[in-house]
Design a protein around this nucleic acid. Structure first.
Lengths: 215, 215
DNA sequence: CGTACTTTTGAATCGCATCAAATCTGGTGG
DNA sequence: CCACCAGATTTGATGCGATTCAAAAGTACG
């Protein structure tokens, strides 16, 4: 039969792909060949709430958001990923608990979950690396919660530069409007706060890079 | 020598302890005997930022907060645990990145990290269960972030009952003031919002239990 | 019974959301 | 090349909701 099939368990058109170094170091060689490349144009859904996870997605370039539908039907952003796994917590889930949306043109590496899971059970060293990755994710999420607990936009911005920035500089790769959503504030409030912080010589701004004046 | 020694690797006073069912099911039998009970009176620090992790703590009763020191020296609550692991993300860390504080009298089970880590490397099924536990933690944290992104106290309260409650009822075991901190709002705002929601027959309240009227 | 803490209500203030609108930007097609 | 459009960026005005400060009432505990 010549029907198109996107399942990872159809061996008829397996294609390996160049892996980012971080992913190559994490995954055992066995899995390297089973990874595939994926491309999603802006505004494409990568997966939907309720669907059965078959692939584990690793964002190589672009940006993906995880979204749930709020109580009033409005979309709420759970997470934003520019580099790294999406939905790593759905490894053992029978269905997704949120949507994944490519908010710009995005390329990913797809790993078949069945193989990934089997390999985690078989290879303790790999499982250990995977646990380390999840530990990092937990820490990052806790910092994000800490940031969202701050009452003023100013505090959130400074905390962001402090905790997510590289030696005093944070790069807002996908624009300030997107950053505002991540910080849980309106874009107007963020623009105003940045302007005020810049005028007060607390931060500097250039090409979407926010730098703390005194690191 | 008769010096007191709290290290898990001093075999002279090993004492096993009754484990909660959830913990017993997670840990391999090998580790059961190496667990110890711990008791921390209210306001005791369980560990400090910068210290080397030797024990993994599982809260059995009471309440523990993870705290970091904010930019202005004020303590910021990263997380609140009434039941489950504290600092599970520090499994492989050489030092803690926050303080743990018993905010009421608390009992914990302590597991020696060295043994825990060794067993994770040796027992793939255990590693798999551990990964499942971390996956749940990641999901819970994402929901917490989602909640903190909501602008009104009302939305946060309803979201809390929705996502953390048992069929429409959330139990604020350690008081509403503590809950306010978890929701990232002042206790005054929480009291007022709860009163308003109750008057509007959206929720009911009894003995620290918040119930959604229409589940 | 006094102390410490939580719960509750009141009043004033401030920061952010909201609505509105202007400018700027990059990209597309005539 | 210019007209045009969609989206990001920016500034302005207004109102609401939460913070803040204050104080009273309730509760647990020694």
């Amino acid at each position: 039969m010549a029907v198109a099939n996107d399942s990872p368990y159809d061996s008829s058109h397996m294609k390996s792909v160049i892996l980012p170094a971080a992913l190559k170091a994490l995954l055992p060689p066995t899995l390297h060949a089973r990874c595939e490349a994926g491309r999603f144009p802006r505004n494409d859904r990568i997966f939907l709430t309720g669907a059965r996870p078959e692939w584990m997605f690793y964002v190589v370039s672009g940006e993906v958001t995880l979204e749930r539908t709020g109580l009033q039907g409005e979309p709420v952003v759970l997470q934003r990923t520019r580099q790294g796994f999406v939905s790593e917590a759905s490894l053992k889930s029978s269905k997704y608990h949120c949507d994944a949306l490519a908010i710009v043109d995005t390329t990913v590496v797809k790993i078949p979950i069945r193989d990934l899971s089997a390999e985690l059970d078989r290879d303790p060293a790999f499982a250990s690396r995977w646990i380390g990755m999840l530990n990092g994710e937990v820490r990052r999420l806790r910092l994000h919660c800490e940031r969202l607990s701050m009452k003023s936009v100013k505090d959130r911005v400074l905390h962001l530069i402090d905790t997510e920035g590289q030696n005093g500089s944070y790069t807002a790769a996908t624009g300030l409007k997107s950053l505002a959503g991540e910080l849980g504030v309106t874009h107007e409030a963020l623009y105003r706060t940045l302007a005020a912080l810049e005028k007060a010589h607390v931060i500097r701004r250039a090409e979407g890079v926010l730098s703390s004046v005194r690191p």
